[in-house]
Write a protein that binds this DNA or RNA. Structure first.
Lengths: 257, 257
DNA sequence: GACCAATTACTGGTCAGACCAGTGACCCAA
DNA sequence: TTGGGTCACTGGTCTGACCAGTAATTGGTC
């Protein structure tokens, strides 16, 4: 009865990275401080320089240290953001992927809405109405809006539609993509919820989508879902462009021009 | 006019990591696929093994690849796998799942074909032609046909189309669904390949799909893919109905009615 | 012919040593 | 004082070697 999972053996470079991380966390190595040279660290840790460098490369990838040729490695001043999902890294280094994700989601959400309008039972519609009312109640409530909670209601609404499609494979696939989106680019989405323009548009599109499904109009439902996702896509692109402008003007302030 | 900021010079290992990431996003390296051995990669990329290993270590840190001593490095599955999900265990052997799966696949394959016709480069078309020719050569060969091998060629053909869509999320999603198809409901598909009627139809539809993509006709490609998947769906339903009739008459023979 | 064990040719993991390329302190001459 | 050169560091990269797992092949036994 052995575990079929692999027990990841502790490789030397991983050990090196863990050891140094521990030293930083313990405060032995302070932010901004110069680390001992690679040769000295090899000596101290009893590993070859190749292994040590793989360990350092790992820390550098996580943003924990920074290295300059001819000078040495420093403990980074800013604590790195916590990135976990593999796709998160790909999104960061290859931003286009985010829009690829939205493209696929639009496809699935569209079909999901169509099928929900086509196949949804009255029980499905009761559940959907409940989710929709909850979401609207929160969005229009007097209390200040928390992006996290609104996102949860939003997600629940879309999930209810998907479930009304009565296709478990569709539900599972879409759920996987949505989780990915929420965990990886939540920061950008937050932006969306905090702007009144896009938010009003989203509310309107949700309403149209809701009505189309409730009135069992497959094509209208599909189109409403597509419009919704496409406008999210556009808004995100605008936000991105705006961020870029901000960065550029910050660069001007720093005397780059 | 020099930068006071650090100008991050392109280090070799970072370049290696970026290059491999790009290959994965472009679909050249597919999820679950074994990478070439380190020595071979060194050769191909023109870097030393030490640098290459630092690059690989970076990707491993991000969870993009997984490595096993004595075996090699694999591209990690970026989207959650289906087999672990408790939901999917319920689906297994549940006949309706097959049709749900085909429904979602039709959607994705359709869009994938459309995008392939729209965005595919001439290099994509060269690869696609190669896959298509291989498949046809096997299907029309004199030797008795093995369903497993034909399915593999079939899969490779569809995958080539998907890759030409240049949407990595689409590639990974569709790949996940295909894995599910091959591992859990393959038995049903086998039937299809062994009947000459459906097989001729499949060949014809493959040809139409192939031509539409090669001639860069997005809508025709999409429609061809949809027709293809729908006719597979229909054929399977017919086979199922036939089986049922057989079972029922067997039951009659056994005196059940 | 079927099966099991040893061989072998791979795979990644690690090491030692070499050399190149930046950095900065130091020293000496103009 | 200042300029330039030297030199002793730093990280960056490459080479070749060997260890340690894995898996297919082989060859023998039953």
């Amino acid at each position: 009865m052995e575990s079929s999972e692999k027990a990841p053996v502790a490789r030397t470079p991983d050990g090196v990275a863990a050891k140094l991380e521990q030293l930083i966390l313990d405060g032995v190595l302070k932010p901004g401080q110069l680390l001992p040279s690679e040769r000295r660290l090899c000596d101290k840790l009893g590993v070859s320089r190749a292994s040590l460098r793989e360990g350092l490369r790992l820390l550098r990838g996580k943003g924990i240290i920074e290295t300059q040729q001819g000078r040495g490695s420093f403990v980074a001043r800013l604590l790195p953001k916590y990135d976990d999902s593999p796709l998160m890294h790909l999104f960061r280094d290859h931003p286009r992927t985010l829009y690829d994700l939205l493209e696929v989601r639009a496809l699935l959400e569209g079909e999901s809405a169509r099928l929900a309008a086509l196949r949804g039972t009255s029980a499905d519609r009761v559940m959907l109405k409940r989710r929709y009312d909850e979401m609207v109640a929160y969005a229009e409530g007097a209390a200040p809006i928390s992006a996290e909670r609104l996102a949860r209601f939003d997600h629940a609404f879309h999930l209810a539609i998907c479930e009304a499609s009565h296709n478990p494979v569709l539900v599972h696939t879409l759920q996987g993509l949505t989780d990915l989106l929420l965990t990886s680019v939540f920061a950008s989405l937050k932006n969306l919820y905090h702007r009144s323009g896009p938010r009003a548009q989203i509310n309107d599109q949700h309403a149209r989508l809701f009505r189309a499904v409730m009135e069992q109009e497959p094509e209208r439902a599909r189109q409403a879902a597509l419009d919704h996702l496409h406008s999210v896509d556009e808004s995100l692109r605008e936000i991105e462009a705006e961020d870029e402008r901000l960065v550029r003007s910050a660069m001007r302030l720093d005397g780059w021009e």
